[in-house]
Amino acid sequence: MNQKRKSSYLRRLFSFVFLLAMVFLIGNAFITVDYNKGISGWSSIIRLNLAKLKMCKIQFRSPGSETLPRGIVASTSDLEMRPLWGAKRNKNPKPNLLAMAAGIKQKESVNKIVKKFRSSEFVVMLFHYDGAVDEWKEFEWSETAIHISVINQTKWWFAKRFLHPDIVSAYSYIFLWDEDLGVEHFDATRYVSIIKEEGLEISQPALDPNLSEVHHQLTARDKKSRVHRRTYKAIGRARCSENSTGPPCTGFVEMMAPVFSKAAWRCTWHMIQNDLNHGWGIDFQLGYCAQGDRTKNIGIVDSEYILHLGLPTLGGSVENKTGSGQFDKTESRHSSDKSKPSSTSQMSSGRSEVRKQTYAELETFKHRWKNAVKNDECWIDRFQS
């Protein structure tokens, strides 16, 4: 009897242990599935956060705006005037910019130039190098023009400081002109239409070779052409031909009346040296800013041509030209007074010093370019022959 009871007890115990084991195994299976699901969920969250972090690191943010939410950043601007009160004027923004160095002695010439640029298509900005600003109020367009006045500074000095690419990015074309230009045969609207059709990133109106001061044969007007991009004439030792690939035969404009696309200007602005006022030397390197092939993307517009008087305004001059392009040879009233230095003599001396400075800056720019090329191991000269 004892043996039977013992056997029955063992069977019950075995059944209980077996049942307990089955409960444990089944329960453990459910716990493992839930655990794996939990691990998988956390793993997905971690992966998403890491991907987001990586994406945020890759995203470019303007220097200085890193602590701001992206949507609040206004990285560009323009030169449009805004009302102090009331509703914003409902008008289309002007697509192009005319920026000029201007002195009050040349106000008639400047007035004629500005009138060639339609007020609906161009913002006008004047760089006053003589300090005279109020004297321009007689012209109707002066009220809506941007006036910046700093004594005895050049067009390039102003451009480097007030035409930053982010400021003028709203404008398709930037006309950076001198004041001593005759525009009788020029229309700005037609000019813009032509350079768009021709795909010119950098351009200038051709110069009337009979009445202009022409420094480079390439910029002289070709009466038989609407636009030309090269010259075939011998220039000093340079033999210009169809195979010529760079200045002074092709890929070049002078600096008195250049016109830049916004992309070309962004590049050119970076090339303007902050401490070199006169900009000499930049013209021969503009091809690097032509957004591609300089022999195609830089050109001279013949159908819209101008007259370049070549007035030496900064530093004074011995003789001043009139609007007709002729010299005014009127002598100073003190020219016969030997006891005092004449105003003519003083102006001549000042102009001579300006001329010396321009040549010195040209050599400085050449030296900097040469060193920059030498020291930049990653730079590739796309025009190297």
Rank of each mutant, 00 (worst) to 15 (best):
I151Y: 08
R221S: 10
K52A: 13
H185I: 01
E198P: 08
T144Y: 09
Y9W: 07
N152A: 13
L218C: 09
W85L: 06
R82Q: 12
K366E: 12
G310T: 04
A188Q: 03
H147W: 00
P165F: 02
K374L: 06
S15E: 08
Y288C: 12
T295I: 08
G325Y: 12
E319F: 15
K296D: 13
L20D: 13
R382A: 12
G316Q: 05
S324A: 15
D293F: 11
T154G: 04
L309R: 14
T330R: 14
P312K: 06
S62H: 04
R5W: 08
I195V: 13
N371G: 00
Q217E: 14
V114C: 08
I148P: 11
P63E: 01
K370D: 12
W157V: 11
Q384C: 07
S342L: 09
M255C: 08
F117L: 07
S317V: 12
I58W: 03
E254A: 03
D275G: 09
F162Q: 05
H308M: 05
N243S: 14
M100C: 05
I202V: 10
P69I: 03
A264T: 05
R239D: 09
Q106F: 10
L276F: 08
Y305C: 10
S212F: 10
V17D: 01
N152G: 08
Y288T: 11
Y171D: 01
M55G: 09
K329T: 15
T358H: 05
S172V: 00
D178E: 14
C240I: 01
R190F: 01
I195Q: 04
K115Y: 09
S352T: 12
T245A: 06
A220R: 02
E377C: 03
H334F: 15
A51K: 12
F30P: 06
H278A: 11
M125D: 06
L200E: 10
S339E: 15
K262E: 04
K160N: 02
V183K: 04
H334M: 15
G281A: 07
A101F: 00
I300G: 12
E213R: 11
D34G: 07
G182W: 01
N28G: 14
G182C: 05
Y171A: 02
T76Y: 06
C240G: 08
G350V: 08
K137P: 01
P165R: 01
Q357S: 13
L200A: 06
A29S: 13
A145V: 01
M347P: 08
H270W: 10
G41R: 12
H367C: 07
N28I: 09
E66H: 02
D34K: 11
D293H: 09
R351G: 15
L25D: 10
E184V: 01
T76I: 05
S241W: 00
V150K: 03
I46W: 04
Y35W: 07
C240M: 02
